[in-house]
Amino acid sequence: MMRKFKKISLGLADHLVLIAISSIVILPFVWMITTSLKPPKLAFAAPYLIPTHFHWQNFVNAWHEAPFSRYYLNSIIVAVLVTFGQVFTSALAAYAFDRFEFPLKKTLWFTLLASMMVPLPLLVIPSFQIIQHLHWADNLVALIIPRCWSAFGILLLRQFIHSIPRDFDDAAKMDGASTLRVIWTVILPLARPAVATLALFAFLFAWNDFLWPLIVLNSPEHFTVPLGIANFSGKYGTRWTLLMAATVSATIPAVIAFLAMQKSLIRGLASGGVNE
């Protein structure tokens, strides 16, 4: 039976479609790499997709102007801590909203959900004034703490926790476990797919964020990857080959990291069965 199933899902046509879409998706990367290896005068000359020059000096110059290893470290610190922060606060809040009754519950729930619709640029200046009062300006803390909660995360985890029978909680509580312990040892492991989804979403958001770090950070040693790249195109002319060398430097490690982690990521997202 399995063989027949496989036969249906596999096919040459599928492969052709996949190859076609993949080549479109991969196009910018090919172009990026080729251009990053051209001498500046040939930045706009053919060939565009197959590297024929190997002008490594672009990379030397790009790294000389911008310490990418530092940017990477900052981006990783921020993204990892934001991810853990969101999972932590969302798990606690989601559990409370699902399992307990308390005054103002409905109002609070509605308010949190509504906050998902707030346009972010609106908050930039007032938020920054708060950061200033806390003396967090030009400090990675300002990128981390305010982002350590997520209305979407609470929504996602609450939905998932709702599908976990209360018997599990009760059994653990009979053994004398505290509420926190129930969440850590019973609920979170069972909710792993939802947690993994939230973690991925939070990580990517923090990783790509541009406007807020721009406003908050002043010292180049605190810059994250997107800020580091933005500095290569300016009012007085863009240096394309350098910019591309910077972009390649900023992209390749992230792709390799995904390649290494994708199996566990998929397993994390999948296990337990999304379709309860």
């Binding site: 930039v124 200046i125 004034q129 200033q132 300006a137 721009l214 010292s219 500095n231 300016g234």
Partner: peptide
Amino acid sequence: VKPVTFPWGDLLPKLQSAIASGSTP
């Protein structure tokens, strides 16, 4: 003196938020 360079389009919002919150360079 430590020069800090921002992209042209981004320096203005930086200055606006810095002035609004009293954290000017």
